[in-house]
Design a protein around this nucleic acid. Sequence first.
RNA 1: UGCCCCGUGGUGUAAUGGUAACACAGAUGACUCUGGAUCAUUCGUUGGGGGUUCGAAUCCUCCCGGGGCAGCCA
Length: 568
Amino acid sequence: MSNDNNNATENENKPSNFIREIIDEDLKTNKYEGRVNTRFPPEPNGYLHIGHAKSICLNFGLARDYGGKCNLRFDDTNPTKEEQEYVDSIKADIAWLGFDWEDREYFASDYFDQLFEYALILIKKGKAYVDSSTGDEIREMRGMPTKPGIESPYRDRSIDENLELFEKMKSGDFKDGEHVLRAKIDMTSPNMNMRDPIMYRIRHASHHRTGDKWCIYPMYDWAHGQSDSVEGITHSICTLEFENHRPLYDWFIENIGIYAPQQIEFARLNLNYTIMSKRKLLKLVEEGYVDGWDDPRMPTLSGYRRRGYTPASIRNFAESVGVAKRNNVIDVSHLEFSVREDLNKSAQRIMAVLRPLKIVLTNYPDDQVEELEAVNNPEDESMGKRKVPFSKFLYIEKDDFMEDPPKKFFRLSPGKEVRLRYAYIIKCEEVLKDPETGEITELHCTYDVDTKSGGPASGRKVKATIHWVSAEHAVEADVRLYDRLFIHPDPAGDKETDFLEHLNPNSLEHLGNCKLEPFASGLQEADRVQFERLGYFCVDSINDEGKLLFNRTVTLRDSWAKISKKNN
RNA sequence: UGCCCCGUGGUGUAAUGGUAACACAGAUGACUCUGGAUCAUUCGUUGGGGGUUCGAAUCCUCCCGGGGCAGCCA
């Protein structure tokens, strides 16, 4: 049932975008000998989220469509934040999304030796120097966006002295922070990134891959472009905040004198009612506001996977949001549309009663059980049919009965009729209540024998058809319903308010007494089904007693919900 | 307030000097043994001023608005 379409080869709806235009132009002018080589460069300091999915689909999609390649490269230049666990999860998530980096799995740390050699070149050219100022001093001298910086007193050290000090930095003669290697560019540049940016810092920290081999680590700016260059990347696609880094990216490559890829920036994906910052997501995980990186309420790929999203639905979503340079906030309804569209075509239907209300069919023979035929998926005839047992004692959804219904309520109420899906039309004759609490405990109904589905009078129309489960045959299950994690459309938008204050206290509801038709007993972990009239659900796990636990992926579109909301 | 980027319906994205389009969302209706799906209809937009042009969302210019940059983070 979990037949994930796990190759992202389908030619989904793909409007052009400015990046494709750049590539088209480069191909026309033969700028890179007709090559297209992109890369997806995550830092292994957290789990991938839906924003990364956009970048993955973009980079791998471009490579696929232009007959090029896309590398996976871990940008692991900061040993204090990075872990193997994240490397593993990132690879798993990309593979799940349906993309294949083949044998091109690289790490910035693969290039530490090469980067060191490049640094030597710049030092020898008099274009890099060891600065022995403190962090505070460097910050001070950098100036402000509106004010030029001033040059460090160490800026004019001799090449020999720089060479010697840099070697000593590498060999561990200094403590953290004693020196840095800086590029000698222009302390008065209006672009802060060009004010003698730091290339290396001393960090006596163990790296998840290089261990204790290094105690100097390259900064992002010093590592990224050169890594691109070494790999022969043609189009180095990154997000908008790196726009001001491009002159530096180009400067390093030009001054070392190596192959020059082209950096292109696009607007990252933002979704309302959630956050995308890895730092904040980490906080939710570490402080227990969610169950982990893969909590189904998280915007992580592992969260969506556990929630029941299909890879194709996320790919389609990522394609449909487009690529541009303007900041954007996408409404979650786009994402929800994307899963529903996919699951509607593929999901097995079953009947499930989440909040059971007992029904007795007073005129139905006591011991009779009928096997009724039900359609597995009305959108896909090839999925066939199944049998559903019907008997005198049934459960229906509490929401499907109202003792005192409003105008447009079409479902069951005293004296009214509804059709039980695939079964009979029934009529509510009597409402039984708990004498203490007044709570409705049971409904006595009669059924109309002639109205059996497919039978002679089955054409008789009633306003509504509701789902049901035979009490004696019901499979017990737990179900988790999810709502948005935050009540605020932009939880992190207001710098004054802690984003945690916008958490939705009702983002998770656990239902422990759900009744499912017998078909459910054959379900496996990660299987996705539609509970008719309710939504799409995914098997989270099955406990030792064999009891199923479901996560609700997304509700069905629900026009009644809108009507009843309007009435309130 | 130095530099860089960006302003197209409620949201996102197209239109690349020639009728402003597509999707989502909303509304209405048809159909329906899922108030689902499907189908039809509908709502609504080029931030503002000036300029170039037969013709401007598109080119120029000024203004306004939004975002980014002051980590030894990426």
